[in-house]
Amino acid sequence: MSVLVYTENWDGKFKKASYELVSYATQVAEMLNTSVTAISIGKVNDDELLKLGGFGATKILKADDQHLNGLDNQAYTDIIARAAIEEGAGVIVFSHNNTGKALASRLSVRLKAAVGAGLIKLPVSLSPFIVYKKVFSGKAFAQVELKTEVKILTLMQNSFELVEADSRAEIVSFAGETGVPKTVIKDVQKQTGKILLTDAEVVVSGGRGMKSPDNWGVIEELADALGAATACSRPVSDEGWRSHDEHTGQTGKIIAPNLYIAAGISGAIQHMAGISSTKCIVAINTDSDAPVFEYADYGVVGDALKVLPALTRAVKEAKSK
């Protein structure tokens, strides 16, 4: 029995979330007294693959057949299912991101394996196998028993620390035999050079209190100073002040940064549901009774248009020391 982890790549590269995931799989494997095999699908060079060994994977299955470059949920499930069976995997780990959710769900039915979806820490117990997650968009936590022999776990991003290991990984080519992929990708549009909201450790977010889209310069300047991504509340994206891609909240992006700075955001429950896993929240609002202060760790009562530039100056000063 082993632990299998699916490590997604982005244009042939892994990112911090990939290493968090392998670290998590390695800790689960230690609990079970077994080893970790990673499976990578698509084109990734060997140097990049070997980095997974640095977080505990001892074997890396490389399925880099040409026809697997675009995500086809059925074809990818074919491969991962076969890897799980050949490796005798008792636990299969995915990231709880769009790809991970799409594949874990299909694999669950394929293998008749229970899924613990959106986990925020290691299993609570092994026998019975109980996992831990947030429910009701962060308003409660739940312990869930997985009652099948093979288990699938999906891990929330930024909920597990990197744990470096000095295992040497062996790369094994894995045949990419699948059904014919049915997903035809006609066009791709990518933003470049921006920090992705879902990857960002620091996020600066604006709400209606910013008064006008013309005022976003002060948000962007603070974000630049912090190396942060920018976000916004739903009214701001609904008004078209900012792109929908930046909407953070229950029906928008769910994020879990270390620091979230909410400027001119009142703190509607739907907004806070999108950031409930944030480690530290700073709220800036003119209204001292705004609900956002009930969720925030640090608060400033004041006009965001004045407070943000002052904060940018203070951050630059502190960083130059």
Binding site: N73, S105, L107, S108, V115, A117, G118, A142
Partner: peptide, 12 residues
């Protein structure tokens, strides 16, 4: 329960 699983399971 924030699982995001039903859709993919149904497809499978």
């Amino acid at each position: 329960y924030n699982g995001s699983m039903v859709s993919g399971m149904l497809a499978e």
